[in-house]
Nucleic acid binder design. Structure first.
Lengths: 121, 121
DNA sequence: TCAACGATTCAACGTATATTGAAGTGTTGA
DNA sequence: TCAACACTTCAATATACGTTGAATCGTTGA
């Protein structure tokens, strides 16, 4: 995870529609949803939804798979976990004991090692 | 954590400058930095930096404390952890065993309970 | 008291983003 | 074969965001 990978993720989730889409797909899990189902669930017109789905997919927050005339989307959950690790990896310059002064931070919330996310070529 | 609280966080971190500022302050830990130090470290002019600091603070990603004529900024790390919990809390509709199909997701990455972040009145 | 300083606010500009309807691409099933 | 369907791409518009210099506010120290 680096800045050029993290920025598009935040840009993607800074839209209300896209945040709704991502959270909906997180709930669905491996099953995912096809575009039409997403649009129906969130009441977003097809043109606009396609715009946002493209943004999410380019940020690698979603994966797409063609199923006949449908497009099935799934959430890339590991990317999200990579992201939070990226943001806290150098917390307190590697001295998390300093976080005692903070409410509850990196010191008692150490994330386990991250496995790499799938990357589309 | 709800949508109206999460959206400003993502909006804030969708700017390269603001992402740099936040990560810099995460590294500094409880010590934080005053505005001038941040500007010098990241080579951002005062006017522009103030604009971004305001956005980050309004999203509650930073806290500010006045020190004489200086303004000391600190990262609100717990908010970030609340956020990732918000995004994954309903992962696979509460059936994380379904995540077996995904690379590595909520099933083996359950976050511990979150303590509430400090909220400015 | 008041000039120097740190930081923010204001006004203005250029650019990027969100949304929509019309048109296009690929797939299905009769 | 071809019309219906699911979805995307394109073009156009309205809006929001990022950056900058000038002006302003509050604090300090002589």
């Amino acid at each position: 995870m680096d800045k050029s990978r993290a920025l598009p993720v935040f840009e993607s989730l800074s839209s209300g529609v896209r945040l709704d889409v991502y959270r909906l797909l997180v709930k669905r899990g491996p099953e995912g949803l096809v575009a039409g189902e997403i649009g129906a669930a969130l009441d977003v017109p097809p043109t606009n939804l396609s715009f946002h789905l493209k943004a999410l997919t380019q940020a690698q927050l979603l994966t797409v798979e063609q199923e006949g005339r449908y497009q099935r989307y799934r959430a890339n959950i590991p990317l999200m976990l990579d992201l939070i690790a990226y943001l806290t990896e150098e917390c307190c310059s590697g001295h998390p004991e300093q976080c005692a002064g903070l409410p509850t931070a990196c010191s008692d919330r150490v994330l386990p090692p991250i496995s790499p996310s799938p990357v589309k070529p």
